[in-house]
Amino acid sequence: MKHHFLAAALSLLATGVLAHSPLKATTPADGAVAGAVPTEVTMTFMRDIRLTRVQATHADHDPVDLDLGDQTSFATGFALPLEGMGPGTYVIEWRGLGDDGHPLTGRFGFTVE
């Protein structure tokens, strides 16, 4: 029984985890198509979070860490400068610590034509 339960728990991890993602809104929006590379990305969370790492991935480039600057305290809104890497799909992956002590992570993406 223990092994069956372990298998069930692992399959749950494989299918759904998406550990805690309280992201409410972003600009550009997730899945949006933009005419030009935005100069910054913004993220708005439902609860306070302290961002610890944000990476932008573009098909033709290695992942780039976005500069958090002085945005190193707990807040719900963040605006980070984005370095343009040309047309294509951008994926922004963020990590941070929630106000309940849980590490949080999530991602969103947009396309530049």
Binding site: K2, F5, L13, H20
Partner: peptide, 22 residues
């Protein structure tokens, strides 16, 4: 003991890996 371990494992999944319903 076996059931207790399964309950603790379920709790560990709940508290580390799953989002609360919004």
């Amino acid at each position: 003991w076996a059931v207790v371990c399964a309950i603790l494992l379920a709790t560990a999944v709940l508290t580390t890996s799953l989002s609360l319903p919004t």
